[in-house]
Nucleic acid binder design. Structure first.
Length: 453
DNA sequence: ACGAGACCTACAAA
DNA sequence: ATTTGTAGGTCTC
């Protein structure tokens, strides 16, 4: 049996403020990246290869492991025969093959393969846009962003495979990042193509829709601990594989941010509700089982390239209440109307890449990163909070009712702050809780049940 | 329309 | 050592 190996490391100049993989790969966008225990090396199977990444302040380092060239070995054949990533209409596979044909088979140090891997990295990390520039634009229009973002530079929205994003975020409902990652890994191991084994660890790519649209998948996934999501995954796989045109999912992409290897085209005119193409993509995704507004927005943002998609989960809803005056009066719960209102507000505020800005704030609030909030930044935050409080005193009505959510939030935050400052902050949050409200549009979608009839 | 419950599981926290 | 609460929601009444 032939065994592949990693290429040598190559490097790409990138500053940490343009890309920070240690943050971007752990902030709940992709659930497949693994950090090696000893190194600060990250690994993930992407488009048929194992990709390894490292980073220092000036460069991103990468290397790749491609499966051995198809030969008489049955394992190699199996690996090679397995389908390319589902929504891939990129020429990657053909190029790779041609490249390895003309090169020494046993040598994976192949320039063409690594050139293509570099293109993939640039695409995956969305590197064509200037992140520093975007941060300064968002900071210019939003004091809250300006206050929180400096501790969280280098966060990029990943250009993930839309199908993988769809399934991963179906798994995310009512769930935590650790278990979502476990579930995605189980999907890969049980239904995805084996790409290679390194240091005794088997690496698999993400399964295709066809692989998951098979009788018995639901029962097996239940056995694997997927719970009620097992049915959603199976049903969605069947819908995508058998009840939609081939390439349907990628047809919902933002043409400005096309699939790997496809030329960009204009994406349409921006509006507070988002561009037409985004609205349509969101609506189409809602037809799938297990896909509600939040999951649909995750797929739009991270899988389909619609930068204005703003996934509003309980966490973002808390941020909206705490920092953007949502949740006042009757609008205390996250429902269809408040969901849309939050998204529209952020789109008006931040513009075409609102989902990106939103992800920075989301990450800044994750417990996993609470260690970044240094003493100095805590003080800055306290000061800004005082200012806001003073400014909003007039429009404040009765702040009697402190919502359940706000209470939870304060307790949660206290862990990140020391006792004295935590108390102080607590008081301020009480004062701020509740202010103005947001107009809501009444665009209601037909229920999935009705549509099925 | 709109708001509750139910829904699977793993893993802290008590 | 058991129990309880909860985690990036969605579906169904």
């Amino acid at each position: 049996m032939s065994v592949g190996c990693f290429s040598d490391w190559r490097k790409l100049p990138v500053s940490l403020s343009e890309l920070c993989i240690n943050t971007t790969l752990r902030c709940g966008q992709s659930f497949r990246w693994q950090k090696l225990p000893d190194d600060d090396e990250w690994r993930c199977v992407l488009r048929g290869r194992i990709l390894s990444l490292k980073q220092d302040p000036t460069h991103l380092y990468y290397r790749a492991y491609f499966p051995p060239k198809p030969s008489s070995s049955s394992e190699a054949q199996a690996a090679a025969a397995l389908p390319t990533p589902p929504s891939s209409n990129a020429p990657s596979r053909a190029e790779s093959k041609a490249a390895s044909d003309s090169a020494d088979q046993s040598n994976n140090n192949n320039d063409a393969l690594l050139d293509e891997t570099l293109s993939l990295i640039k695409h995956y990390f969305n590197l064509s846009s200037n992140l520093t520039q975007l941060y300064s634009e968002w900071s210019a229009v939003d004091p809250n962003f300006k206050m929180r973002a400096p501790q969280f530079t280098g966060i990029r929205i990943l250009c993930q495979d839309a199908w993988e994003a769809l399934i991963a975020f179906i798994c995310s409902s009512n769930n935590n990042i650790a278990r979502i990652s476990q579930m995605v890994e189980k999907l890969c191991v049980n239904y995805g193509p084996h790409i290679g084994t390194v240091d005794g660890r088997a690496y698999h790519d993400f399964p295709t829709p066809a692989a998951l649209a098979v009788e018995g998948v639901e029962a097996r996934l239940r056995g694997l601990g997927f719970g009620y999501r097992a049915k959603y995954i199976y049903q969605t796989a069947v819908m995508v594989e058998k009840e939609r045109e081939k390439g349907w999912l990628d047809s919902l992409r933002n043409p400005e941010s096309p699939a790997f290897g496809v030329e960009p085209a204009p994406g349409g005119e921006m509006r507070p509700e988002g561009r037409q193409g985004y609205r349509e993509a969101h609506e189409k995704l809602l037809e799938l089982q297990g896909v509600g507004p939040k999951v649909a927005d995750c797929v739009c943002l991270m899988g389909l390239g619609w930068g204005e998609a703003v996934p509003v989960d309980t966490h973002v809803w808390q941020i909206a209440q705490r920092d953007y005056k949502f949740g006042k009066g009757g609008n205390k719960t996250l429902n269809k109307a408040t969901y849309d209102a939050v998204g529209n507000h952020f789109r008006k505020l931040w513009g075409k890449e609102a989902g990106w800005a939103h992800s920075v704030l989301f990450t800044a609030d994750l417990r996993a990163f609470s260690d970044r909030l240094t003493m100095t930044s805590k003080k800055v935050e306290a000061d800004v909070t005082v200012k806001q409080e003073e400014k909003e005193e007039e429009i404040e009505t009765k702040t009697q009712v402190k919502t359940k959510v706000a209470t939870k939030r304060s307790v949660k935050d206290e862990d990140a702050f020391d006792a004295a400052e935590g108390k102080e902050k607590n008081l301020k949050e009480q004062a701020i809780a509740g202010a103005s409200e947001e107009k809501t549009t009444q665009t209601r979608r037909t229920s999935k049940r009705l549509r099925k009839q």
